[in-house]
């Protein structure tokens, strides 16, 4: 009896240690995003919105490069998401370039601001921020929205169900849905799914080959720079200090891999964007969103502890009852 008890105690301790080792200690958040991953810097002092072109070159380059990935919906499937009365269809509006759509993964925001009494225009190329702790990817119920160690956040179009949860949990509402494509079409007439979500994938196929995303290369003003996170972040800090610019994207949503440099504060830009798009349902803002997962980080850590609390208290209470017998 004695021996068995000690053996069990031994197994329990060994098991506890094994499990504890499986969980690397919660490291300081910044440290977990590799400094070797990729990041983008978008310098708003340089971007002029391609005023001399009919379509900004980053936008046309992106459309051109991703043409084969754009959805070709099955007409029969373009019907309301029962019991709802609507469905998301952009297939007849492929030319829209003033917002994100399944056929437009980057757009240029034109923001009028007042600088020392003068009206000025600021142009902002907007796309997915490729966040460090992206709720869109981490909360996808099928795990097909993925955060890669290299930095990009991508959606697997072949397996996406189109529930649009990623769009709802993204503080900027980035992913866009197209009905009539994807796995849900095989389940028709079951009223599940809604299509496929689309967004910028940071030209992941190119990045893996050591190339830049196409929007970076096509910019005539060199407003977008792309490279290793460490270098891009250092460059942003330096420019911000030297030219007295403001940075966006470093803290927002718990940190992202896309930094904006602006001559005016982002509070001001945010106000102006909201003002100009009052009637629109969806506006891509410059607010300061908190990361939804970070907010409940401590609760999450508590969960990781609960098996140990349970094992210890069961061990103790089982012994007590044994003595009573």
């Amino acid at each position: 009896m004695e021996i068995k008890l000690t053996r069990r105690k031994f197994l329990l301790t060994a098991g506890t240690i094994a499990v504890a080792n499986l969980l690397p200690p919660p490291v300081d958040s910044e440290a977990m995003v590799s400094s070797n991953s990729f990041a983008t810097l978008i310098d708003l002092t340089k971007c002029d919105g391609c005023k001399n072109y009919s379509v900004p070159l980053c936008v046309s380059a992106c459309k051109e490069a991703n043409r084969d990935k754009f959805p070709e919906p099955d007409r029969k499937m373009l019907k309301p998401y029962w019991p709802q009365k609507f469905f998301d269809d952009w297939s007849s509006k492929r030319d829209v370039i003033d917002r994100l759509t399944p056929y437009n993964w980057i757009f240029v925001q034109r923001i009028k601001i007042n600088k020392e009494g003068k009206e000025e225009e600021i142009f902002v190329p907007r796309r997915c921020m490729h966040c460090d702790n992206p709720p869109c990817a981490k909360l996808c119920p099928f795990g097909v929205n993925k955060k890669h160690p290299e930095g990009p956040v991508t959606i697997d179009c072949k397996l996406c169900f189109g529930g649009a949860k990623c769009k709802d949990v993204c503080p900027w509402g980035v992913p866009q849905r197209q009905a009539g494509v994807g796995v849900y079409t095989y389940l028709d007439p079951l009223p599940v799914g809604g299509g496929v979500m689309y967004k910028c994938d940071l030209c992941f196929d190119r990045v893996k080959k050591g190339q830049n995303p196409v929007c970076v290369n096509k910019c005539p003003k060199n407003a977008i720079s792309f490279g290793r996170r460490e270098e891009i972040f250092a460059k942003a800090d330096l420019l911000a200090r030297e030219k007295k610019l403001y940075i966006y994207g470093k803290e927002e949503n718990g940190g992202t891999s896309t930094l904006y440099l602006s001559p005016v504060t982002f509070e001001e830009l945010d106000k102006a964007v909201l003002q100009e798009n009052k009637e629109k349902k969806q506006v891509m803002r410059f607010h300061k969103p908190k990361n939804m997962l970070d907010k409940y980080k401590n609760l999450a850590k508590l969960i990781l502890l609960s098996p140990f609390v349970a094992i210890i208290s069961a061990f103790i209470s089982a012994k007590k009852v044994n003595r009573e017998d």
Binding site: L23, P26, V27, S29, E30, M32, V33, S34, D132, N133, A137, K138, C140, P141, F142, G143, V144, K146, K147, H148, P149, D156, G254, G255, L293, D294, Y296, K297, A300, K301, I303, L304, P307
Partner: peptide, 28 residues
């Protein structure tokens, strides 16, 4: 699977995305 899903939520933890996809599908 739930513990793995929770662990990846405690900060910018980047686990292998294909592994996470399997974990998530199994959980679902």
């Amino acid at each position: 699977t739930g513990l793995i899903k929770t662990y990846k939520n405690i900060g910018p933890v980047v686990l292998n995305p294909d592994f996470l996809m399997i974990v998530t599908l199994v959980h679902t």
